[in-house]
Design a protein around this nucleic acid. Structure first.
Lengths: 337, 337
DNA sequence: CAGTTTTGCGCAAACGATTGCGCTGTGTAT
DNA sequence: ATACACAGCGCAATCGTTTGCGCAAAACTG
């Protein structure tokens, strides 16, 4: 390590005041009409000793951190991992860093994360909300730009970017019905979450009045839930249902393992369709039909939205009208149904 | 929002000095012998106006941020997603927050991330390194506690916690050989990365002098690489190899899709084994044999190690001897070979 | 040459917290 | 009465930046 490399140090070594050094090194030289010679002297010294601004001090003074907080319900879930990856890349491209928190589907942890984000002075927040009601998020949204992703609240003034889960589930269910399946089991994720509720609604609407027997079971976006609920629902009778709709790729994995235990092969003995577009769905045997969500698009729109909120916030403008957008998923048919 | 909630504000409203308020609210009341009445008056007011300390100011003053930086080569890779999840949970449990950066396998981005971490005054860094040589990491490690995970450098004074990739690959290859496979194709990941090099070494050592024909191809831990390289290596001849060893689960997916195109079924026409323990491997048809890495264990050890480094760093002690640990993977045999 | 403009730069306050040191006032021992 | 201990608290410096304001010297104007 070299000498301490602060503005003060450079100031001492160049003979210029801290102010001048600061202005030069933050590129405000001509705005403040610093002489060519000063600029040179200072930049040279800065380079020589490898000056790097202390971002903490900078944040304190400017009330900007070049950081956004991202909170997701489970980074180990490939869905959120992909989403995070997209979002982080976007932020990075704009010169922003990411504080990542994992709420583990817990309202309490989510709350703590949001609070921590504020205490750290993040410039904006992206959240996949877990809470059942929007109050807290709205309160936070008052203070710092906030955009919801993937999940949203019924009636809220917050911005959100989600996929149309109603439409996705509707398409999938309608496809099954049209294919002639008549006893359909749906295995859902976290029941209270908005995407899940919408999927249930889409599913039920699609089969309504179509002479289809149906049932919705389950309570988590996890492999275990898929397996457990499938086994319980079939109750040992392989003919109990002729199709299964798994509400996520993780659920699907569990479901398939259960079906195999029952001696059923997807696409042959039973129709199977899933939500999500995890890479492996095409590599299962047989490949699995699914509702693909335009994650990249959603992530990009969310970041765009956040930045426009942040810009307004910076300029002290009133909060712009919320952007509330649903992007459309697509149905991808393979050989499992 | 209520009034501004700073120490100064509370100081004014209670009549006590900022120092006293600070000491009360940071729990140093009896250390500094603050009167019971003052404590009460201050805490009451703090609660009333919902005081939350400004962590940025706190960081600036104390030179501690309660934050560690985590940099991985690709958070969308399930392997790193799982690892991150484990690490983040651990840190969270200890009251630390996580700045996450994605180097996307780029040395340059990794460098930037590490630099940013320092500029932000993180208390420690966990890195899955991408660089081919340790210099930069070692330099960083001089200034802030740093522990490598999953990948390490040949000769370094840095601490690391990795899995024994040599042993893992050796076990897998030896198993294939013992099972009678004689023409084995290995599809590797990023060739320069330490885990990959070790896997290659383990693989080659295991088949040496066993009368086995072999070839190592590929250059990335990706689905495409797996598919492309498998197709190229078989060159249309399904009998070209009788077994394939995929060096990661992502590679495996690509490989399987290629094998299917060649009309081959794993476990029947060809032996297949993979690295990694992604959830889906058990749900493929047939389930895939693999080398499972004790990720949770590795993550926990890494965090433990980091904290002991951090503790020493705090107390101004000399850097403790590096902890350099390999944890042992396990061979899980299913029906693919 | 006096007056005005421009150029180039520094002073000092601020951001919000932490902390070493010292000050005052009361109680106790001598 | 003098000394001393200690309880209870505040002063002010500090962390490293940023920035409004103003000042002096140089340059220009008429």
């Amino acid at each position: 390590m070299l000498e301490k490399t602060t503005l003060a140090a450079i100031s001492e070594r160049t003979g210029y005041s801290v102010s001048t050094v600061s202005r030069v090194l933050s590129g405000k030289a001509e705005k403040y009409r610093i002489s060519q010679s000063a600029v040179e002297r200072v930049t040279r010294e800065a380079r020589r000793c490898g000056y790097r601004p202390n971002l903490v001090a900078q944040s304190l003074r400017t009330r900007q951190s070049q950081t956004v907080g991202l909170v997701v319900p489970g980074i180990d879930n490939p869905f959120f991992a992909t989403l995070s990856s997209i979002v982080i890349a976007q932020l990075d491209a704009r010169g922003y860093h990411t504080l990542l928190a994992d709420s583990r589907e817990s309202e309490e942890e989510e709350r703590q994360a949001l609070e921590m984000f504020q205490d750290r002075g993040v410039d904006g927040i992206l959240a996949v909300p877990v809470a059942s009601s929007p109050e807290f998020h709205e309160e936070v949204g008052q203070n710092v730009p906030l955009v919801l992703i993937d999940r949203y609240f019924e009636k809220t003034s917050l911005s959100y970017v989600c996929t149309d889960n109603y439409a996705g589930a509707y398409m999938a269910a309608r496809y099954l019905v049209d294919k002639g399946y008549r006893r359909i089991l749906a295995i859902q994720g976290v029941p209270a979450s908005m995407p899940n509720r919408e999927r249930v609604r889409g599913f039920l609407d699609a089969i309504k009045d179509r002479g289809v027997e149906s049932r919705v079971v389950g309570d988590a976006f996890s492999v275990e839930n898929g397996s457990r609920e499938a086994l319980a629902a079939f109750a040992g009778n392989p003919k109990a249902y002729d199709a299964v709709f798994a509400f996520s790729a993780t659920i699907l994995l569990g479901t398939i393992s259960a079906l195999r235990r029952l001696g059923l092969t997807e696409g042959k003995d039973i129709g199977v369709i899933s939500y999500d577009n995890n890479g492996f769905l095409d590599f299962m045997n047989p490949p699995v039909s699914r509702v693909e969500q335009p994650l990249r698009e959603a992530g990009e729109i969310a970041v765009d939205t956040l930045f426009s909120l942040m810009e307004a916030h910076l300029s002290g403008l009133p909060r712009p009208a919320p952007v509330q957008q649903l992007v459309m998923p697509t149905l991808v048919i393979r050989e499992s149904c």
